[in-house]
Design a protein around this nucleic acid. Structure first.
Lengths: 355, 355
DNA sequence: CGCGGCCATTAGAACGATCCAAAAGTAGTC
DNA sequence: GACTACTTTTGGATCGTTCTAATGGCCGCG
């Protein structure tokens, strides 16, 4: 009740439109629109009057209406397979940062690694008419289905994973990938340089494209160094700490046992550390290992983890920039960008113990 | 070139509208609209014809246009102070999950803990006409400025932190907060029950409302148990692992030194563990400590960390639900929901060593 | 046959902005 | 005063949808 009298003029019900402003200061709707867009056509004096009125009535621009008329878009959809993962959260923050600076708004969609949800999310987002889509596909997602959901009008930037199936050539979809193979090769070469000869590749599933690529980098480095690879040195696990800890035993079932392991990612590496500790093997001293991703935790584990830094926030900014570039040139050829990863050497990757 | 001939009818340039469909099967725009919305008014036979045409032309609904006409919204803005933090990432995933099920799309905004960016992000998002806003304010954000940016039309749900300043009564802003005080009290009581008498409160800054609340819970428990609190048992740090590790020394400058600490959050607790290790003090055995948040890592630290689980994903779902409820009843009184947190006892909080 | 009632469909005006072409005002020149 | 040249303003159509009120067809019934 008492509050009623305090109500500012901005707090009343109906939404303020250009017409209200126009009526309020005796000009036409068109003029107000010109003022809003900072056109040089309008007279200084009228501009001031209009701006005063905008402020007074607490006008808020209706971008949806403008977009409708101009047939433009001011949003970009960001569809991630797992937002809860800090890697993707950082990525999202980077994307949003760059898009925001460019005047775009981010439409978020999280698919929880389910192809069905991905379909649903894409069809829902596309109805809001985003100017483009940044997509980190769910595992098992196929190009044809994604294309069917988003149509050929909206540019797509693929991040992090390849799609299954194949894409018609008229769809110019850009890609931003991590250099998984090179990264794993760097890690393996580092372990070799430390003097290790029996090196395993630990964790992950071979049906994920990133895991296959990392494994290939490992094989490459081993071959280049003329080192043999025993089949039992490839241990597959879920990409989780828990399962990696469990699978530690398998690694030592192999004879001769490896003295080092290149791990699929940091989570797996940390899990392996756990498993090693449980067996009385001290990671870093008795057994060397490397990760991939450089998650926040890697620097603080015991011992700190040697790993490959991917800088997900920078990748997010980069993804946004690639998509913005595509919006500027819709007909340009599709590009593939491979982001370099850098080896961060910490204490988990020491030399083998003299036997 | 070759691709040209393969171009499906859906891949042509201009966007398909209701008019195209109507013309394509000889009915009016209005009828097509009715079909789209599943109205029972339209004849079975026409419906089939129209649906066939929709499919054939690859129509995609323009929700922006519909929203304009119906004066409704189908989006919710989610504005977070730090998306990179796994806690908020999980929260966002929960929000998006629930909103998606309700047919809403999430407009994302990340403020990076800056009040200026928060202003910019809010003004930008509001132009897209979200039905409501879920806001975890940046530190130091004030009610008046947020209100000025979003206007009184759009419902706001505050998460996690209080706003400074004060809100006019006509704005019915709901709040979802964590029970910081009670949680810290539980942790402290647990340490007391383990036999500790000299308990510190470690980490965080007192200008954050969550930190003040947690500290209050600690004080409450200590007082209730009749235990004294030495001033030097309150050590302030940045809420990061690094700074917490550094500040470990300050904790033992106090004489008599504490035998246990309630930490501001998990990051701080893990940092303290690091510092303890460096001083040759074994956390869990020589010194007990608890965290807050139950981040993924807490279960895997050495030793595993006793902490308070807040289930951020569930909080996200809850936040979305609260906002959806508000949309249904815009005039209902503002509510404040305090989400319970649960103590997860692990090995970091053992009994004091007999002296 | 005429009339009410029901069903299915539709024309045309919205929603809130922008665009276009044209009009109105202002000034300078002959 | 008529003309051109320039600046500033404006009406009305338009974007793709929904809404309202009205239309036409068909049936049965008195």
């Amino acid at each position: 009740m008492a509050a009623r009298t305090m109500e500012s003029s901005t707090s009343i019900r109906r939404k303020i439109t250009l017409n209200d402003i126009a009526a309020g200061c005796g000009v036409s709707r068109a003029t107000v629109s010109l003022v809003l867009r900072g056109s040089p056509l309008v007279n200084k004096h009228t501009r001031a009057r209009v701006e005063e009125e905008l402020r007074k009535q607490g006008y808020v621009y209706n971008r949806a209406a403008a977009n409708l008329r101009r047939r433009t878009s001011s949003s970009i959809a960001l569809v991630l397979n797992e937002l809860g993962n800090p890697f993707f959260a950082e990525f999202a923050a980077g994307v949003d940062e760059t898009l925001g600076q460019a005047g775009f708004v981010t439409l978020l969609g999280s698919t929880g690694e389910s192809v069905e949800r991905e379909q649903a999310v894409l069809s829902s987002l596309i109805e809001h008419g985003p100017g483009g889509i940044i997509l980190s596909p769910a595992e098992g997602s196929a190009a044809e289905r994604v294309l069917a959901a988003v149509g050929a009008q909206t540019p797509v930037l693929l991040f992090n994973r390849e799609l299954g199936g194949n894409l018609p050539e008229y769809a110019h979809w850009d890609r931003l990938m991590l250099d998984n193979q090179h990264g794993a090769r760097l890690a393996t070469e580092h372990l070799i340089a430390q003097g290790h000869k029996r090196i395993a590749f630990f964790g992950g599933h071979s049906d994920s494209s990133s895991c296959r690529q990392r494994h290939a980098g490992y094989v490459e480095a081993m071959n280049a160094a003329g080192l043999p690879i025993a089949p039992r040195w490839r241990v597959e696990t879920m990409p989780t700490r828990m399962d990696a800890a469990r699978a530690c035993a398998e690694l030592f079932a192999a004879k001769p046992a490896p003295t080092a392991a290149v791990c699929y990612n940091d989570a797996v590496a940390l899990g392996l550390m756990l498993g090693l500790n449980q067996r009385g093997i001290q990671p870093g001293r008795d057994f060397a290992l490397t990760g991939f991703d450089d998650i926040a935790e890697a620097a603080f584990s015991m011992p700190p983890l040697t790993t490959l830094a991917t800088d997900p926030r920078a990748r997010g900014r980069q993804a946004a920039q690639l998509l913005l570039a595509r919006l500027r040139k819709p007909q340009a050829d599709a590009t593939t960008t491979v982001a370099q990863v850098t080896l961060v050497v910490r204490e988990s990757s020491g030399a083998p113990r003299p036997t």
